[in-house]
Design a protein around this nucleic acid. Structure first.
Lengths: 197, 197, 197, 197
DNA sequence: GATGAATGAGTGTTCATTCAT
DNA sequence: CATGAATGAACACTCATTCAT
């Protein structure tokens, strides 16, 4: 039987890294901590990741795929979008960002030290893609009339900033109760929102 | 005799700490780096700050005073506020947050690791004060009719999140050109904004 | 059943060890390096040698047999030795030592750290045997008159020192062209040499 | 009073390094060992040497100066050299090499791994200078008639090889008693020697 | 027999902190 | 007050060795 190349162990280390890097930052997080958290021995971390930096690098870049899947798509084509679908999309975005606290803190860590981390480029690309997508959504909404006129580019920038800030400015407890508040405020960035009701 | 409270040297060390902590995080920043940046000798840092942690602590809490002055006040009383004054206030907020990149990155660093840093409480208090102030502003705007109806508490949370995100999500270059975009989007969180015009 | 004593694989590992130990010293040489050089897998090394030390030990002691065969013998009996045979013997010694660079570096490594390596004793014994042999040769030469009078013991020590130094003091390139020089100088240690011609 | 920039401590570390590197080789020697041997704390080594490699580098290159002083000079000019002075010079060489066991083992360590250590070049240069000097001595001796004809270049190579081998092939005890033997054999490399008497 | 994942002792190095000058 | 030599705890990383497959 083929060696299963135990991906399960790699995954445990990866998740432990994500959790600890987001709690303590890159430097404060030690390999030993990660090994303990993952329930493997010290040296095993180096079996799956060449060094600390590579592990960190993986923690930054790999989850982007999941983000792409959940965030840069509607269930249908953009052209057939209705206001209800739009509201759902925004809700999905807020939920997803709020849920990804660990990951977003790592991202924030990289953004703050762009010269230090080369992963920055991949993140920039993702941000651009995300804002392009939001612009398209805004344009469709305006064309179809369920959104008031506005500058799509500004909406893109503001929307991404808001989602990041929503997750990073508050610690866990507060946020859970605030999901709805953030969803309503997110809609307002498009010129929509509760006041429409 | 008490230690000197405010020499020019202390200030230089403090500013150097602020800059380096925000660039490199707490752990990566060394006392030696700070001393070099401040143009003082290695041991002198310990003349003005008991240890690294106390210096960091100062970097987090001291600038809050300036924030209070610039952010939690209008030039007149709230009751006499007009729409133009409101727009100016929001503009001032955006400008001020965008300007304080270094400091906000340090703040973010603390927020992400609340168990590790006791400064968190002071920051929480400030956030509460800020959101209270914003709620009052929103209520006045609604009462006076220059803002549509909305939930003041939600506006407060959303507004703070947005300001933080605006500054922390993008690196310098992008931001300079985006000031107006952020001002417009900030107004929309109150239900106002360019599209109203 | 006993472990296999002499597979082709064992020989490959052995030769790789000899080469790498002489290039990099004991500590710098890793088992993984040896395995790669030998074209076998990592763990296979441990099939043929109990541990790193035993492999090193083998690298020091096993080649001594070949040395004995080539170095401690004349083709005829000592008593029938002529000057021509003596010159040939010395030439053979120089050639052989110059050729065995890898091995001699390992030997030198052991000599320099006698407390650390128990192989030292075997080497000492060999050195004694070699010097005894040289003394006999010198005595015969003097008795037969083709060598001037001299102290045979001193000749033995000097000759071995010279052969080791010739190989270990210069790196490869130089040596190739110097074979004759070393042969001539080796003869001079016996009081013979080109100037006699 | 000026800070004495405690050179004494640096010297202690340096000597400890020399001793231990020659006993154990580069890799086996630990900074901790050196610190203990020098009677300083662990971190102090790094106050005087940037890292292990620089310390080793110093151990190889710095003593060369002393070698130059003792080895590459006669007390008078070469032209006025007599046979007695020549014998004394050779005796001085043998004494000096035999005395410098530690250093020569380190040198040997570097020679054996030329790709690994850049110090090699300095050593090569020194070897060339030494052999040039020996050639000049040999030429003078032949010209003045106290040495038989011979190839000065070959003598240079052989002489250096012999001096190195004399020191590196035998461990301490043996050598002390052999000084005279080595001096006599060294003279023979020039075609001179006791048998001449 | 052959393999290589898992382990953890041991290494070089960094850096906050102390303290004598 | 200012300095920087001295210290040693703590870290990332290497590698010989074991052992399940």
């Amino acid at each position: 039987m083929a060696k299963p190349r135990s991906t399960e162990k790699r995954e445990r280390i990866f998740q432990a890294g994500l959790r600890l890097f987001s709690h303590n930052g890159y430097t404060k997080t030690t390999i030993k901590d990660i090994a303990n958290e993952a329930g493997v021995s010290f040296g095993t971390v180096f079996t799956y990741f060449q060094n600390k930096e590579e592990l960190f690098n993986s923690c930054v870049t790999e989850p982007l795929e999941e983000f792409r899947d959940h965030i840069l798509t509607t269930h249908e084509t953009l052209d057939s979008m209705t206001y209800e679908m739009f509201v759902q999309l925004v809700g999905r975005h807020v939920d997803f960002f709020l849920e990804k606290e660990h990951y977003l803190r790592v991202v924030q860590y990289v953004i703050g030290q762009p010269e230090r981390f080369p992963e920055m480029e991949v993140l920039d690309q993702f941000a651009d893609d995300f804002m392009d997508f939001i612009q398209s959504v805004a344009k469709v909404g305006m064309k179809k009339g369920f959104l008031p006129e506005g500058n799509p580019e500004e909406i893109g920038y503001g929307y991404l900033a808001f989602l990041m800030g929503a997750r990073l400015t508050f610690t866990d407890h507060a946020n859970v109760q605030l999901t709805n508040a953030f969803k309503n405020q997110a809609l307002r960035l498009f010129g929509a929102g509760i006041t429409e009701g």
